[in-house]
Structure formats: C-alpha cells, structure tokens
C-alpha cells in the first residue's frame, strides 16, 4: 500500500513537473510577446500604442483608484452567467442529441446556422429584445457559446466506443453505472475542450456586447476610454481582460482538466 502511495505521489510529481515546465515555455513566449509590443510601441509613439509599462501603470492606477474591480466583476458576472447557461443547456441538449441518430441529423442544420451567424447579428437582435442591461450581453454570450458546447457534447456521445458499450452490456452494468463509469468519462474528454473554448469565446463576446449596449463593465469602460482617445487606458482594460481570462483558464480549468483526464496523461507518458 505504501508502495502504491509512493507510486501515486511520484506520478503526481512528474505530472506537475511537466505542467511547470510547460509553464516556463509559456512564460518565455509571453516575454517575447512583451518585447515585440515594447519595440512596436517605441516606434509608433504613445498615442497609437502605449508601451507595456505604460499600460500596466495605468492599470495599476485603475486598481488603486478602485475603478477596476467593480467593472471586472460586472463583466465577469455577465460572461459567466451566459457561459454557465450555455454549459448547462448546451451540454444537456448535446448529450441528448448524441444518443439519438435522428436528433443529431435534425440538429445539424440548426447548429450550422448558429455557428455561422455572426455574434454581432445576435447582439443587434438582443438589443431589440432585451434593451440596455444585463440581458443583452448574457444572451449574446449564451447564443455564441451554445453551439460549441452542443457540438462537443454531441460528438462525445456519438463517438462512444461501441466495443466498450458491449463490455458494459456483457457485464450487466446498470444504466446508472453505464453513465458514470463508461459514458461520462468518455464524453467529458470531448466536453472539456469545448467548455474551455466556449469560455474564451464568452470573454470576447461579453466585451463586444458591453461596448455597444451597456453603461458599465469592461466593454463600456473601453468605449469611454476610446472616446477620450485614451490609448493607455484602453490598453490597460484589454490587459485586465486578457489577464482574467488567462487566470481562469490556467488556474481553474487546466488543472481541473488534468485531474479529470489523468488516465490520458499517464497512458501517454509511460508508453
């Protein structure tokens, strides 16, 4: 048993080692990105593109004056509400559609339309339906994320290995066990990437929606700084936006994904 624990501990260490090492790679590419930004900003001048230092100083000013947090919180609330709605509804409907061949056939053209429809078109409709307020950005985020998650869930169910289904039947697994021991682990490996790309999507869409439809949130703050020709503030808000997204993805979703799909990691690293 101790041997077992030690093995698990060393597996975990190796896994987090890989994670940290990949973190160094990301940091290096981030450094290169900042360097290019700095050089370009020096060429163009602060009115066109402020340097990273200027943007970060402005951002710090926004935080210190207490202006940043409320706006970030409002934007986050809208993005997460729309994202959460599409996660729940998109996953459930996608799973249901994947189970039935007819339902997946019927869903296909609708999904094509949903994917093809530009978010800005939805935004216009949402403005007409919900007016200025939380409804518009939340709806736009939801409708933009929904098809991604729906397709992920549907493909997850459709690609379920027929051979493993036979194993489940042969060993007399109950419906509940089939779900928790066979279907869900497989489906999650399709759902998770879909959730992550939908989350990135929600963050972009929410700012666009706010820019055009609301008085508060990061998008509205961007609109204000643009109308003042305040490039440094615009850059600061963009940095805040991207920073929040990176934090959620790398601190929350990525570790979660690693944990849920540890079997994939171990399987590939030891072969």
């Amino acid at each position: 048993m101790t041997r077992n624990l030690r093995q698990q501990a060393s597996d975990a260490l190796t896994a987090s080692g890989h994670y940290l090492w990949s973190g160094w790679g990301s940091l290096a590419s981030l450094g290169i990105f900042l360097a290019i930004w700095e050089l370009t900003a020096q060429q163009l001048g602060p009115l066109i593109l402020p340097t990273p230092i200027e943007a970060l100083t402005t951002l710090r000013g926004l935080f210190e004056s207490g202006a940043a947090w409320p706006e970030i919180a409002i934007t986050a609330r809208r993005a997460l509400a729309g994202f959460g709605l599409s996660v729940v509804i998109g996953s459930l409907l996608g799973l249901a559609a994947g189970v039935s061949m007819t339902a997946s056939m019927m869903a296909r053209p609708i999904i094509t339309v949903l994917v093809g429809m530009p978010p800005i078109a939805w935004l216009i409709l949402a403005l007409l339906w919900f007016g200025a307020g939380d409804g518009t950005p939340i709806f736009t985020v939801f409708i933009a994320c929904f098809p991604i998650i729906f397709v992920g869930a549907m493909q997850g169910t459709r690609t379920l290995d027929g051979q493993l289904k036979e194993v489940a039947r042969m060993f007399g697994l109950s419906t509940w066990m089939k779900l928790t021991d066979v279907y869900l682990p497989h489906v999650v490996s399709y759902l998770f990437p879909a959730w992550i790309s939908a989350l990135g999507m929600s963050w972009k869409i929410v700012v666009m929606a706010e820019l055009l439809s609301t008085e508060d949130g990061i998008g509205a703050a961007l609109a204000v700084s643009r109308s003042h020709l305040d490039t440094a503030a615009s850059m600061a808000w963009i940095v805040a936006l991207v920073g929040t997204l990176l934090a959620i993805e790398y601190l929350l979703l990525e570790p979660l994904k690693r944990r849920v799909e540890s079997w994939r990691e171990f399987a590939s690293s030891s072969n």
């Binding site: 051979q163 036979e166 060993f171 007399g172 697994l173 021991d181 066979v182 682990p185």
Partner: peptide, 19 residues
C-alpha cells in the same frame, strides 16, 4: 477492451461492481 479511465484493479472489479 479495458476502460481506459479506470485503473486496472477497478477494471477487474467492474463486473463485481455491477453486481
């Protein structure tokens, strides 16, 4: 045809779990 997301021990016990 083992379930890739279950450790070997849990795979062997699958039929027992179903019972």
């Amino acid at each position: 045809r083992l379930l890739p997301w279950k450790r070997t021990l849990a795979n062997i016990g699958l039929g027992l779990k179903a019972r």
